[in-house]
Simulated assay, not measured.
Amino acid sequence: MRPLSLLETRVLGVLIEKAHTVPDSYPLSLNALMAGCNQKTARDPVLNASEAEVQTAVDALKVLHLVFESSGSRVTRYEHNMARTMALPGAAVALLSVLMLRGPQTSSELRANCERLHKFADVSSVEAFLEELAERSDDKGGPLAVKLPRAPGAREARWTHLLAGEIDLSALPVAAESADFVAASELAALKAGQQAMQRDIDTLRALVDRLYDELGVSRNA
Rank of each mutant, 00 (worst) to 15 (best):
132 E>K: 07
91 A>L: 01
75 V>C: 08
134 A>R: 07
178 S>R: 15
147 K>N: 11
77 R>D: 06
198 Q>R: 15
193 G>I: 06
131 E>V: 06
178 S>K: 13
129 F>H: 13
30 L>A: 08
65 H>T: 15
96 L>F: 02
74 R>A: 10
61 L>R: 10
98 V>G: 05
15 L>A: 00
122 D>V: 04
74 R>C: 04
183 A>R: 07
98 V>M: 05
98 V>D: 02
49 A>S: 14
176 A>C: 07
62 K>V: 12
125 S>F: 14
190 L>F: 09
103 G>P: 12
181 F>W: 09
212 Y>M: 03
206 A>S: 13
3 P>N: 02
137 S>W: 07
46 V>P: 00
218 S>K: 11
51 E>I: 04
59 D>G: 01
153 G>M: 09
172 L>N: 07
46 V>F: 05
218 S>Y: 04
132 E>I: 03
23 P>G: 15
108 S>Y: 14
27 P>A: 12
215 L>I: 09
63 V>I: 15
16 I>T: 05
177 E>D: 13
18 K>D: 03
149 P>W: 10
64 L>V: 14
80 H>P: 01
92 A>M: 12
129 F>C: 11
106 T>F: 08
187 L>D: 01
156 E>T: 07
103 G>C: 10
76 T>Y: 03
177 E>Y: 10
20 H>T: 12
13 G>R: 03
118 H>T: 00
184 A>D: 09
148 L>V: 15
25 S>P: 02
89 P>D: 06
149 P>C: 15
37 C>P: 00
178 S>G: 13
89 P>V: 05
58 V>M: 05
72 G>I: 00
36 G>Q: 03
132 E>M: 05
47 L>V: 08
107 S>G: 15
83 A>R: 01
12 L>R: 03
114 C>R: 00
1 M>P: 05
100 M>F: 14
17 E>I: 01
195 Q>C: 06
219 R>D: 01
92 A>Y: 00
9 T>L: 13
216 G>F: 05
141 G>W: 11
108 S>L: 09
108 S>Q: 10
117 L>Y: 08
214 E>K: 09
67 V>L: 10
139 D>A: 04
182 V>R: 08
36 G>F: 03
100 M>E: 02
42 A>P: 01
46 V>G: 09
40 K>F: 08
180 D>W: 12
151 A>C: 14
141 G>H: 08
73 S>A: 13
141 G>A: 05
56 T>Q: 11
145 A>L: 03
171 A>D: 11
205 R>Q: 14
45 P>Y: 08
168 D>P: 08
190 L>M: 07
98 V>F: 03
197 M>T: 11
34 M>E: 07
20 H>I: 08
174 V>G: 04
187 L>Y: 02
44 D>N: 14
193 G>E: 06
34 M>W: 01
179 A>W: 12
202 D>A: 11
8 E>W: 12
112 A>V: 14
187 L>W: 08
190 L>N: 05
21 T>V: 14
38 N>Q: 04
37 C>G: 02
41 T>M: 06
161 H>K: 03
65 H>M: 15
151 A>Y: 13
40 K>E: 09
